[in-house]
């Protein structure tokens, strides 16, 4: 902290101060415009070291965490858009309504992060859903459970690294909706499954959390544009 006040010309620190200041004013949308004033303004990089050329790194600090969330929301939104565009024949009308709602929520999350990150946002990611049979209700439910449980574990796992309190609250607002999705999808897939041992620790009642290393590996199974989160090495 002393460094920050004593070295006001340090670009990274100045950027962090900007982030804090902007957070306090609650104008998230304007943050990235300000950030672009700094010399090091690329919130993401594409390089060949993270798993093939074209890998998109989410960046560092709070911006990195927002981009990390943005990447996951892009994946979820793309998945549900495809599910709803070509529903497996044996989905009931109630299930279709739920999936359509979830699609809309994930699109909202995706568009929120895109707008909030502005010029600091990573690019649009191309998914790879070749492992999912969209004509099979079972295949779709399995994938949906994977994505929702992964999302909840990812948000919970990274929450304590978020510096800006406003971002932390917004992450909280989203993760509980992801948890609602996760519970309902899991219960449709197998009645009575919503807090199973792969979702909730049966001895503490705490949701399972995952750090970015495991989350990125899991997400990349469904992404043609690979992502990395090198600043979040846990």
């Amino acid at each position: 902290m002393k460094t920050e006040t004593q070295n006001p010309y340090n670009a990274n620190m100045a950027r962090r101060a900007f982030l804090r200041y902007a957070g306090a004013s609650t104008a998230v949308a304007g943050i990235m415009a300000m950030q672009s004033c700094s010399k090091d303004n690329s919130a993401y990089e594409e390089d060949g070291s993270g798993g093939g050329s074209g890998t998109v790194d989410v960046g560092s600090g709070d911006t990195g965490i927002l981009n990390y969330a943005y990447a996951l929301e892009q994946l979820e939104a793309a998945f549900y858009i495809q599910v709803v565009n070509s529903f497996a024949a044996d989905f009931t009308s109630d299930e279709r309504a739920l999936f359509t709602d979830i699609r809309d929520h994930e699109v909202s999350h995706r568009e929120f992060f895109k707008a909030a990150l502005g010029s600091g946002a990573i690019k649009g990611l191309t998914p790879d859903f070749s492992k999912i049979d969209f004509s099979s209700r079972t295949s779709v439910l399995n994938a949906a459970k994977t994505f929702e449980d992964l999302g909840v574990a990812a948000y919970d796992g990274v929450a304590a690294k978020i510096q800006n309190p406003d971002y932390l609250v917004i992450a909280g607002k989203i993760v509980s909706v992801e948890a609602r999705h996760a519970a309902v999808i899991s219960n449709i897939r197998s009645q009575g499954s919503f807090v199973d041992t792969d979702q909730v620790d049966g001895s503490t009642g705490l949701n399972i959390t995952l750090g970015p290393t495991k989350v990125v590996a899991a997400a990349n199974l469904y992404l043609k544009t690979k992502i990395s989160a090198k600043s979040f090495n846990f």
């Binding site: 909280g172 509980s176 609602r180 519970a183 949701n207």
Partner: peptide, 28 residues
């Protein structure tokens, strides 16, 4: 309460994890 727990990251993680479980319950 999440912002009130930012100074104790381990407790914050536990709290958001309980929070997610409450949301699972709420949905059900």
């Amino acid at each position: 309460q999440v912002t009130a727990l930012q100074s104790v990251p381990d407790i914050l993680t536990a709290a958001v994890s309980i929070h997610a479980v409450e949301a699972r319950h709420a949905a059900i």
